[in-house]
Simulated assay, not measured.
Amino acid sequence: MRKKIVAGNWKMNKTPKQAVELVNSLKDKINTSAVDVVVCPTFVCLQAVLEAVKGTNIAVGAQNMYFEENGAYTGEISPEMLTSMGVKYVIIGHSERRQYFAETNETVNKKTLKAIEHKLIPIVCVGESLAEREQGITIDLVRLQTKIALKDVNKEDAKNVVIAYEPIWAIGTGKTATNEQAEEVCKAIRDVVSEIYDVETGDAVRVQYGGSVNAGNANALFNMGNIDGGLVGGASLKEEFASIVNY
């Protein structure tokens, strides 16, 4: 039985003080241990949030990392920097990274491999634009993104990768894929993992849905057979996040 995982992607929001205030407001309201809970603040907030979540079941993730150990890469963060702080997860290949910062399927693969090497759990994002959905290529595109992300990842490591299906047209728009649309794509992701490795691995991989997830739709989405939780954007910046976790 796959354990649900709900992760909050705070994006470019919250100062360290505000981040601690949010985490403190969530700690007493999250009343389940049946769900893995992750918050992903900005780099400047990581240390403060790590301190604030000590003694709770809330884990901390980063929103990005580079695929080199160190060097002349101004503005980048290495995996060792994250693990040395106690960060456990890292979001890789979010559509905003792909759209605004030239992330490619190939760099997503490099980052995934480097995260695994450093015992970070990658949350790998895949998903289509509205134009791509209207062209009818959603499944083909998401299968391709998943295959490239997992290139050279061995079977045992693949089981620990989290894959987040995020239809780009539903991120921050208030639009949400229907339960059936989300389930169809999440099942396709699981199927392609099974094809790459085997059914056991496909069954083990956790697949999240992301795209305007909120307290009102989380229960229905997370109870679909192939949706193992959510990567939550705007709603993770509010106490509503606790309601999503407690769905």
Rank of each mutant, 00 (worst) to 15 (best):
V205H: 09
R2N: 02
Q18A: 08
K111V: 13
E96W: 04
A242W: 02
V213C: 05
L82S: 01
H118Y: 14
Q18L: 07
A235C: 07
T112F: 11
V90F: 03
K111W: 11
N70W: 07
N24F: 08
K114N: 03
N154R: 11
K27G: 08
T138A: 12
V245H: 06
G55W: 10
M224V: 06
E96T: 04
D198A: 15
S25A: 15
E180G: 06
V126I: 15
A115F: 07
N105C: 09
I121C: 05
N219E: 14
G202C: 09
N246M: 01
Y66N: 08
L130G: 07
G55H: 08
N246T: 02
V44K: 00
L82I: 11
R2I: 04
K110Q: 14
I123S: 12
G225E: 15
Q135N: 15
R97C: 05
N31P: 01
K11E: 09
R143D: 13
N109K: 06
I5F: 14
L26D: 03
G71E: 02
R143H: 13
L141N: 07
S236N: 10
M85L: 15
I196M: 10
S243L: 15
G172I: 15
F67W: 15
S212P: 05
N64E: 07
K110S: 12
I58F: 02
L231E: 10
T74C: 05
I123L: 12
K175H: 15
G210L: 12
L237N: 03
C40M: 14
K29D: 06
A72N: 04
N105H: 13
P16V: 00
V232S: 05
G229Q: 03
K155G: 10
D157E: 15
A19S: 04
G93N: 05
F43M: 00
E166C: 14
I196P: 10
W10M: 04
N57I: 02
V199G: 06
F241Y: 12
N105Y: 14
N13I: 01
N24G: 10
E21P: 09
V23G: 04
I92P: 01
N31V: 08
M224L: 13
K29P: 01
R133W: 04
P16E: 01
S84A: 15
R206H: 12
D198Y: 14
A34K: 13
K4N: 08
K88N: 03
Y209N: 08
R190E: 08
K147P: 03
H118E: 05
K187Q: 11
I92G: 01
W10A: 00
V6L: 06
